[in-house]
Structures are given as C-alpha cells and as structure tokens.
C-alpha cells in the first residue's frame, strides 16, 4: 500500500501548484505512470480519492497515461517491450535494460476559478 503515501505526495504537489497559480479548485490531474513503476493504478486511484478529501484537489479526476515499459539489450542493442524487469532480448536472450517504464510524474493540472 505504498500507493497511499504516493497519493498524499500527489495531493501535496498539486496543492502547491494550485496555490501558486491562485486556483481554488483542481478538476483534473494528468499523471504519467510507467508500467514498471511499481504502482498499482487501481490502488492509486482508490487512495487518491481519500487523500484528496477536504483539499483543493477533492473530487479531481485522475487521468492516468500509462507508459509502456521498454528497454535495450546491452549485448546486441536490440530494443524491445518489457513485461517485467526480467525480460529476455528478442534477439540474443540476454536481459534487456530498462530505459522507459519507471515514470511516476504529474504532467499537468486543470483548474477552474
């Protein structure tokens, strides 16, 4: 359940941004989440709802863009999709080294005044 502390971090980060922009209500939060970021999206949504209660982000829609994990083979340079951290290179069978898929970032917020 590390999603609860992540959800609280999101609310804190968003509230800071909203305050700086003089906004009273956050309606929408756009998040990028890599498929190998270690975050369970369902759980994050559930926790976010609780974490946002009675804050500027209460009731905001969490729009989650999943970033498909991919990597490159250190031996032959072939690139491939990664379903897990231990994914074989489709070319030579070595393990791919992850270069995309660990993202967990707030891209934008939409506020109404």
């Amino acid at each position: 359940m590390h999603e609860m502390s992540l959800a609280m971090s999101i609310v804190e980060l968003v509230a800071t941004e909203a305050k700086a922009a003089g906004a009273r209500q956050v309606n929408r939060i756009e998040l990028e989440v890599g498929t190998l970021s270690g975050v369970l999206v369902d759980s994050l949504r559930f926790c976010f709802e609780a974490a946002a209660r009675e804050t500027v982000a209460a009731g905001a829609a969490l729009v989650i863009r999943e970033i498909a994990a991919s990597g490159r083979c250190p031996a032959c340079g072939v690139e491939g999709a990664m379903a897990g951290l231990l994914t074989d290179c489709p070319g030579c069978g070595q393990y791919l080294v992850l270069d995309k898929g660990r993202e967990l970032r707030v891209v934008s917020i939409t506020v109404d005044e």
């Binding site: 971090s9 980060l13 970032r105």
Partner: peptide, 14 residues
C-alpha cells in the same frame, strides 16, 4: 472532462 485552465507541472511524484 470539461474545459478549464491547464497548468504544466512536470514533476516527479517521488
């Protein structure tokens, strides 16, 4: 969802 003012944040949650 409906329109509103969108602000770029681009910040890592961690």
């Amino acid at each position: 969802h409906g329109p509103g003012r969108t602000l770029r944040v681009e910040q890592d949650v961690l």
